[in-house]
Design a protein around this nucleic acid. Structure first.
Length: 255
DNA sequence: ATGGTCGTGCGACGA
């Protein structure tokens, strides 16, 4: 089972790139964030033609999550207990033996802002939900855009980003709290190149200069980690004309 | 450089 995550920053704009990437990479599952498309406009037919079923939870202009799969998608959840939120950021679904939770964590604006408080509150609530999901499912995969760089080695210039959004201590503690409920950052289970990132600002030629952050993650339960064979970032789509500002991540599992 | 580039949707705002 090959499972991927990609913040596409508008599925409408990126659909040709997504279809190309699916064709080349052939993941069994792709979790997408920032679709920025309402459910009535979701490109179900184009994706079906490429061999993928879709579940989606979208809204106008902002946010929006979807899961594409070659296999059946069962038991979708978009509004877990405790979330009373019009923002479409959560989509949990079952594929085969795996419970998959696709997340688009709030960006948080600036440290200390209202959006920052919303982000930390959201992270506290998602922690509770994930701890329940871990009780309910042996094989759990939580993936998406977490908008948190967990450690200094996940940041191209840690001093410049010290206590800034995506890197502040409360955000890193909230990320750590997700690991503490029983999730494993599977990217770090494998040898990786130094300066491995998943997001680069559109400005200042940040990608060409590898001025990036690792803010997209694949977290898995212990029993899913045992079956994980590989985890990598695919920077190729970030090199294309009119790219998303994020690169996809892929994890492969035995069975 | 209180900057810079995108996407949405036609003026800001979010990231």
């Amino acid at each position: 089972m090959k499972i991927a995550t990609w913040n596409v920053n508008s599925l409408r704009v990126r659909l040709p790139q997504v279809l190309n990437w699916l064709g080349r990479e052939q993941p069994d599952v792709l979790a997408i964030q920032e679709t920025k498309i309402t459910d009535d406009a979701f490109p179900v037919a184009e994706l079906a033609e490429a061999g993928y079923r879709s579940v989606y939870s979208g809204q106008k202009t902002y946010n929006g999550v979807a899961v594409l799969s070659k296999l059946d998608l069962a038991d979708p959840v978009t509004d877990p207990e405790g979330f009373d939120d019009p923002q479409r950021r959560i989509l949990a679904v079952t594929v085969g033996d795996y419970r998959i939770v696709n997340l688009y964590v709030p960006n948080g604006g600036e440290v200390g802002s209202d959006k920052y408080a919303y982000k930390l509150d959201w992270l506290a609530k998602i922690r509770n939900y994930l701890s329940l999901e871990l009780e309910r499912h042996r094989r759990l995969i939580v993936l998406g855009d977490f908008n948190i760089a967990p450690e200094d080695r996940d940041v191209y210039d840690p001093e410049a980003w010290r206590e800034r959004i995506l890197c502040s201590t409360p955000e890193r503690e909230a990320f750590r709290a997700l690991l503490d409920v029983g999730l494993i950052d599977v990217f770090r289970r494998f040898e990786q190149a130094e300066k491995s990132y998943t997001w680069w600002d559109y400005r200042l030629n940040a990608f060409r200069r590898n001025m990036g952050l690792r803010i997209d993650h694949i977290l898995v339960s212990a029993s899913a980690a045992e079956d994980c064979l590989a985890c990598r970032i695919d920077v190729e789509p970030r090199k294309l004309e009119r790219p998303s500002d994020h690169a996809p991540m892929v994890a492969e599992f035995r069975a």
